[in-house]
Amino acid sequence: MVIYGVFLLAICYFAGLFVGEVTGRLVGLNANVGGVGFAMLLLLLLCSYSETVKKNLQNGNFSDGLRFWQNMYIPVVVAMSATQDVVKALRSGWLAMLCGTTITVFSLCLIPFVSRITSSKDVVKEEGSD
């Protein structure tokens, strides 16, 4: 049943948003702090560790609904790009244009650097715990 997978997704989604909202309040913000991330973690944990969820994934009860929305990701992203404020971005003046692109380019250049400095530390940590 497709709806069972969608139901599981909805439950995780709301649980995550709730945790994010509470976290936001705890740190004194009227904003959702990482709600989607918590929802993803919850779904991931359920799929990896809960026996009930694993059993239902195997007999196909959950996977159809989950897979459908997973595959809708790219269409949703395309729709999202069609609703961006592109006009504002192009008219925002040289300061905004230059600043936004500079940040993007330099941040991208940092990826290999961060990957390198954290990988050596991760290895050390893994050796330490083994």
Partner: peptide, 21 residues
Amino acid sequence: IGLLGGSMMRDFTIVATAFGA
């Protein structure tokens, strides 16, 4: 398109991508 590409559907499908990670 605003509904399909809005933050609700975006976040819902993002959570769905966690399935299989």
